[in-house]
């Protein structure tokens, strides 16, 4: 019992997830900087690896200003609610073995619910601060959410359909011979693009576009609330990539090495794939300019939704035809 509680709190539970969030933020900033010909964070810890931690702590110790016209209750508590979403979802991902910490038979549905929940919380959060910039940002948030949600869910459903399971554990287990990405490369692509939209990474940083609407929905937040909102985004980054690894890249599965104990091996494979997915997003994010909200909606509805539907049809044909059925 104590072991499990420790697992949930430290490794591979909450603290590990937060640490990974910091790591991803650092890698993100560092790779972007290197690709732009800069060094990026350097003096905070070795190569600046503690930079996200310093940012987080500094914001924690800062004064928190609540705008007079804001809805106090939501403004104070919603960041915590928002923070829960990716943190809870992370418990459904198997990291150090084929069984996740809190998996159950239909946990994929829970993940989908938590995704929608996060979008909902962030919308009321944004609306609660009631300034003209956050109002525009709220509109953009909602519009972006309804745009990316359909392709995102369709991509997830594709994996679930093919693996004939609604639990992350089951989907990972079904990929022991063949990774899903080889069957459904387009679903993976759609998932990554939709994920970038969910994380508000360029080119989809529309709701927090710096040069258009100040800091978007983050404009009015300061101090502790801001630190948690930023942390949530980073943890969401980790969770999104981890889900991609589990759904399409076979989780921690990989060739066995005799000398290494299976949990360690599983963890190493998982981390390597996680960082690869993260790196893919870093590169895309650095290479693209921000698009407009109308263009984003068009991209998701007119291009990516048909693509993911075609992918589902293709997978269904495969299943009906009995070719390449997952184990």
């Amino acid at each position: 019992m104590i072991n499990e509680i420790l697992q949930a709190i430290i490794f591979p539970g909450v603290l590990f997830t937060i640490a990974m969030g910091f790591l991803f933020d650092w890698l993100d900033r560092k790779t972007a900087a290197r690709m732009q010909g800069r060094i990026g964070p350097k003096i905070t810890g070795p190569s600046g690896i503690l930079q996200p931690l310093a940012d987080f702590l500094k914001l924690l110790f800062k004064e928190e200003i609540i705008p007079s016209h804001a809805d106090r209750v939501i403004f104070l508590f919603a960041p915590a609610l928002y923070f829960l979403a990716p943190l809870l979802s992370m418990l459904f991902i198997p990291i150090i073995g084929p069984t996740p910490l809190a998996g159950f038979e239909f946990d994929l549905l829970a993940i989908l619910f938590l995704l929608a929940y996060a979008a909902f919380v962030v919308t009321i959060l944004s609306y609660s601060s009631a300034s003209s910039f956050t109002t525009i940002a709220t509109g953009r948030l909602v519009l972006q959410y309804v745009s990316y949600e359909i392709p995102l869910v369709l991509a997830i459903i594709t994996a679930a359909l093919y693996s004939r399971s609604l639990s992350v554990e089951g989907i990972v287990a079904s990929q022991s011979t063949l990774w899903n990405i080889l069957v459904m490369p387009f679903a993976f692509g759609v998932y990554i693009i939709a994920l970038m939209a969910e994380l508000e990474k360029p080119p989809f940083d529309i709701p927090s576009a710096k040069t258009e609407i100040v800091a978007g929905w983050l404009t009015e937040f300061s101090g502790r609330a801001l630190s948690f909102l930023k942390l949530t985004k980073e943890v969401g980054y980790v969770f999104g990539s981890a889900l991609a690894v589990s759904l399409f890249l076979g989780g921690g599965l990989g060739p066995e090495v005799a000398a290494v104990p299976p949990p360690v091996l599983y963890f190493v494979y998982f981390m390597v794939k996680l960082l690869l997915v993260g790196f893919l997003i870093f590169v895309l994010k650095t290479a693209l300019a921000r698009i407009k909200i109308g263009q984003a909606t068009e991209l998701f509805w007119k291009i990516l939704t048909p693509v993911s539907l075609a992918q589902i049809a293709f997978v269904l044909v495969l299943i009906q035809g009995g070719v390449l059925v997952a184990t």
Binding site: R34, M35, V283, T286, A287
Partner: peptide
Amino acid sequence: RAGAAIPEMFRTMLEKPSTR
């Protein structure tokens, strides 16, 4: 095409950063 800058990005990444 999207991502026209990617080759140059990787080239820059492998170079020494130009920071003084």
